[in-house]
Design a protein around this nucleic acid. Structure first.
Lengths: 206, 206, 206, 206
DNA sequence: AATGAATGAGCCTTCATTCAT
DNA sequence: CATGAATGAAGGCTCATTCAT
């Protein structure tokens, strides 16, 4: 066919894109390899040339997600290394909230959320490669802010939950639980509001 | 057996308990009706006397969840109607965080989180019966706090995300994404820390 | 259907009969569970109620074969315990040759011959439960004959090969390698001839 | 590779060697063309340059087997044309038994045994080109022995079964059904014992 | 109400074979 | 000749659901 031997090295990524799309629609268990193949413009058998099983597609997807998402966050923090911690955290929170307002971006994290219980390996991968790194990142930022006197002392696990939690909630409320009859304010408003609240919460009191 | 003679009208609830347990372990798609039946001490066929299909079990489960969870939260808020908003919200946040630290309690919400994407009806039910009521509850509390001068003006959707988010994150980090090698601080510490941070964030500034 | 719940305890044996028929026609690998089911008058799924996998059907078949075949041989030898060894062996050889002239009887042994290489467990089962017991049987008979002075001293493994071999050859030449253009003499002639030759071979020389 | 430049006309034979090895291990149906190709040092596609299908490989293999095996036997008999029939048959039987004690030699005949039922064409080929010629060979030898007065009159089909059978049994007992815990006597002993027994059986009686 | 044998649709996976390069 | 990506048909097995008892 037209596709035959055309950019064969791009195939795995194309398949993963298709898999993510299908998984997001019907869940991992409900996804048919044939549908993934069709969406990638391949035959069922061809998919198995690149991935040994449906489950390995899921794992590869999570790995790719980790590379991308955390990479972006870490880059953002590094590029703000000179700025004060408060400003950096505000940038981070608004950036994440804006990103997660895009259903295409949130598709992969939502998939992980949905399948992690069922697949402990996925959970472990995400825990180590995404949550763990996020915790490190926030922890360092926290330390910097405390040293600068702009943050109050706060436990890292509390920090993680208080920063990532609103992102998580926003992600779910923007997609799965979005109410067509009661649309939420635009992303910028939400993102700004969350950042304000969290940062105010972190500020020390006399 | 002994079960049969005793409380035949309790059968549906027993089946739902069994279903929740199995769904939580292997997900809705991975759950076998036969396993649910076995855990409820029944045969496969008997389950179909009470529930027409596996999917209807899931829906019934979510309905039951909504009744219980939001009921508890609303009751808590009502019983604190006299107290100041700050104290009430602190009670609510710590109560929820403590509750969700118990994997048995969080099993149902986690199930919803995992399956909502796949089943729009479930998502709608949860959105209306749980999230919607939670939003109302927080909104009223917010209004009260603003009127009392203890809360700054804050958007309801930001409030929802900022309060429910940390609970959500805590729930997932206590179960699916718990790291056996890096145990988190005890629930009281986490719950108190989150409440502190959120309430401090809500406090007005000069 | 008509078959539903009728003699459910006969089902495994019925399925094995069907499996043997299909395996014999197209080999184990070529056999479709659906065909076996159809021949047993069942649906594909019903077969899996009784056998976990196609391979376990094969094993059960071999076990059943062992029970039947060797049982018959041992019974024959026991019932001739009083007779002299020569006569007993003659009876055994002609009985076996006659039996194996019937393609229905030889179907199972031929199946084992065909699949043993592929399934070491099958080979081991057959080796221990059929060949091993046959070797014992022949060995004892041999000893008796030697004690009676009607047999020359002969190694047990030579004995096994010299007695079982012609049976084996006869079995294959009567079925798979039968030449429609050159039909062999009737079973009695063959059976008698083989017995004569083997027994004459066993007779001591001055 | 080195293989490519060297002896390109030997490719078919190399492929057949590889095919025999793989077929022997996992059976015809279980053999993957890719594995055969790999063992022959070729790619999957290249194999199809030489053989149109997997089944044709099997047929070619059987044809090659017939050429080799029967050729050897016929040659052995011819070179003993002057000797007496008894001695010739003894040579033939011990030679065959010794040969078949080698699993590499017996691989092809065992393969035929396993697959003949499934592939009537294979069976017919083997019947005509191997069994038929063996029957001829033994028949002539028989006639010579009878004429020389060293053999009793015996039916050709009985002769075939009584001579080939022990070989067959020995072949299977040396490989597929070999018992690692009860090793058989060395090949010479077995071969000699079988020849003794058969030849004694053929000897006329007063 | 309860049982559990039976059904049948469905899906993952394998692999012989093809063919563009 | 050789490669290996791609195809597509095929089949083992699972399981929600039904229903005779």
């Amino acid at each position: 066919m037209a596709r035959r031997a055309r950019r064969p090295e791009a195939r795995p990524d194309e398949i993963l894109d298709a898999a993510l799309a299908v998984f997001s629609e019907v869940g991992f268990a409900g996804a048919r390899v044939e549908d993934i193949a069709a969406r990638a413009g391949l035959s069922k058998g061809a998919v198995y040339v690149y991935f040994e099983s449906k489950e390995l597609m899921l794992k590869a997807l999570v790995r790719r997600l980790a590379d991308r998402v955390v990479g972006a966050a870490e880059m953002l923090v590094q590029s703000n290394a000179q700025a004060d911690a408060e400003q950096t955290l505000r940038s981070l929170l608004t950036f994440m909230a804006m990103q997660l307002s895009n259903p295409k971006v949130s598709a992969a994290p939502r998939l992980v959320l949905a399948e992690a219980q069922r697949f402990p390996e996925i959970a472990a991968l995400y825990r180590d490669d995404v949550i763990g790194r996020a915790r490190q990142l926030l922890g360092k930022l926290c330390d910097r802010g405390i040293a600068q006197g702009v943050f109050r002392a706060v436990d890292r696990d509390v920090m993680l939950r208080s920063c990532a939690g609103p992102m998580l909630a926003h992600m779910m409320l923007s997609t799965v639980f979005a109410d067509p009859k009661n649309p939420a304010p635009p992303p910028e408003v939400i993102a700004g509001g969350i950042a304000d609240l969290v940062l105010n919460g972190l500020r020390p009191r006399p």
